Structure formats: structure tokens, C-alpha cells
Computed example of a mutant assay.
Amino acid sequence: MSIPHADLAAFVTVAEHLSFHRAAIARNVTRSAISHAIRRLEAQLGVRLLNRNTRGVSLTEAGRQLSTRLQQAFADIDQAVDDVNHFRDTPHGSIRITVPRAVGLTLVAPIVATLTRRNPGLSVEVSSNDGLVDIVQAGFDAGIRFGESLQQDMIAMKINFPLHFAVVGSPEYLAGVPVPQVPADLAAHSCIRYRFPSGVSFPWEFRKDGTTVQIEVHGPILLDDQELMIETALAGAGLAFVFAERVQAHLDSGRLVRCLADWTPQFSNLYLYYPDRTFVPAGLRALADLLRHPRAADLSIGVAVTATEVEA
């Protein structure tokens, strides 16, 4: 049986006030509208809910039972709405984000730790995936990606956290070959190459004194994971082009040696992106706010722009 909720709400109000007049005032409608709603409800149920006489209104036994159940039901509805308000007003519930694997290790881990520590009611699910992800179809609230790979209908906020690339090799590998002095010297080296999930190989780009050089390197090993590239370089297989932040401990210990340090560029093309600016969950706002304030984790974030503006 489908009964209009407005008629049920009108009945609950009359039951509370035991007056059609006061119920009409409470609901900001006419007394006639309240009377029609009660008649429709009783007709649909086939049961008298209210006794009316010149002295006033009283509940029948059926009306008293229905009123009690409906008051509880409407209270549950009010609580459900209040629970949803938590998502708007305070970080609560859960958010799902997708990030490139290497960026997740370097950037996201400390951010997520701080975010959940500051907001005990929030849980965060992170999916590390180097492929292009349709966050709407996959059910993510947001993602972190490089600017050139953003979808055009996304809202994007630049993360001004510079990442630095480094060309590294093991002492064992470099002992048998000349150490490269300029990017062109890489032609004589075995390079551990990176391939995107799309199948495209990642070119090695260098910058010095305003000059940018892009090198297509060669080597027998092609991988799709920076951590695996680092392990392969540690094993002496060749030179790898990876985030310097991921290999700093190996450089400090001497297990890896950095090459072309004066040529390797700073990289700052990361964006937090999400589908819509309207009704952004509080948890996602907290994530953006954390990225926006440098003191939170030595990070800063730029002004929100559309993905179309990213490429402009």
C-alpha cells in the first residue's frame, strides 16, 4: 500500500496537538488541507483514526497505535538526516581515493596518516594504480594524478609538492662503464625503462639552465613499477630514472649512486581531482585542506581549477 508521506506527517501533527487548527499552523497549511489529508488517510486505510466532535479531537485506539509507530519512524528519519549532515559538516564515514603507486608511497602515506589521526570518525581507502581511472564509474571520491592525464570534466587542485627525478645505478654496475656526464651519454648504457599501463614507454626528460632534453633510452628490462625498478637497479641491472625521494636512503648508504644530478628536473605536475564542486564530502574537504596547508606535512596546494584549465 502506497500512502503519501505528507498525509502521514499531517496525521502525526494532529495527533500531537489534538487540534486541526493548531496542526495547520504548525505545518503552515490551511485547516482544510489538514482535514483533507486525514480523510484521505482514513479512506485508504479503511480505519477511523480520529474522533471529532464539537469539543475537539481525540485518537481512536487504531489512531493511537499508528501515531506511536509513526512518531518513532519520523524520529528515525530525522536521525538519518542528521547522520548525513555529519558528512557535510565534519569528516565522518569513509572516502576512497586512487593514486599512482610511486606517488602513494612518497606523498599519500604521510597525508593519510595525518588525516585519520586528526579525524577519528573518518576512514580512508587508497587504491594504488598507475592506470587512468574513471573515478565516477569506479566509485572513488577523488584521485591524485599527473596533470596531462586528467579527464576534462574533473575539478582539479594543483598539489605544489615538488618531486625530483634521479638517475641512479649501483656501484657494481657503474664500475664497468663510464659514468654519464650529459644525457646523450645514456645511449651507451643499459637503462631500466618504465612503461605506463597504456603501453607507452616513459621518456627520460632532463633540464639544465633553461634547456630541456628528452631522451629515448634503451635497455633489455621494461617494468611498470618504480619500486621494482629500484630493486632492479640495486641488483646491478642498469640505470633507473625514479623519484629521488624513493631512493634517498639507498643514496645515503652508498648502495646506489646518482648520475646527472645537475640535469635531473624538479617535477610538480600533481593534482588532486574530483568530479563535482557541489556537496563535496567533509572527508574530501579535509583531505584538500590538509594538502592546502604547508605546515600540515610540508605540502601546499594551488587554487582550484578545471581540468580544461590545467592544460591551458
Score class of each variant (00 low, 15 high):
Arg145Ser: 11
Gly131Glu: 08
Val136Lys: 13
Gln151Arg: 15
Leu163Cys: 05
Ser128Glu: 11
Arg145Tyr: 07
Asn119His: 10
Asp134Lys: 06
Pro120Ala: 05
Ala156Ser: 15
Met157Ile: 11
Asn129Lys: 05
Phe161Cys: 07
Gln137Gly: 10
Leu132Met: 11
Ser170Ala: 10
Pro171Met: 08
Gly131Leu: 02
Val124Ala: 04
Val167Arg: 03
Val126Tyr: 06
Phe161Pro: 02
Pro120Val: 02
Asn160Phe: 03
Pro162Val: 01
Gln152Lys: 14
Phe161Arg: 10
Glu125Tyr: 09
Val168Trp: 00
His164Ala: 14
Ser127His: 13
Ser123Asp: 09
Thr116Pro: 04
Lys158Gln: 14
Ser128Gly: 09
Met157Ala: 12
Ile135Val: 09
Arg118Met: 12
Arg117Gln: 14
Leu115Ala: 07
Gly139Pro: 03
Phe161Glu: 05
Ala156Thr: 07
Val126Ala: 08
Val167Gly: 10
Pro162Trp: 00
Ile155His: 13
His164Pro: 07
His164Val: 13
Asn119Gln: 04
Leu132Ala: 12
Gln152His: 14
Gly169Pro: 06
Arg117Leu: 13
Leu122Thr: 01
Ala166Thr: 03
Thr116Lys: 09
Glu148Gly: 11
Thr116Glu: 15
Asn129Glu: 10
Val168Ser: 02
Val124Glu: 02
Val168Met: 03
Val167Lys: 02
Leu132Cys: 09
Leu115Lys: 05
Ala138Arg: 09
Ala138Trp: 07
Asp130Glu: 01
Leu115Glu: 06
Phe146Ile: 10
Leu115Arg: 04
Asn119Leu: 04
Ser127Trp: 08
Leu163Gln: 05
Phe146Ser: 15
Ile155Gly: 09
Ala156Glu: 08
Asp141Leu: 05
Ser123Val: 11
Arg118Val: 10
Ala138Gln: 11
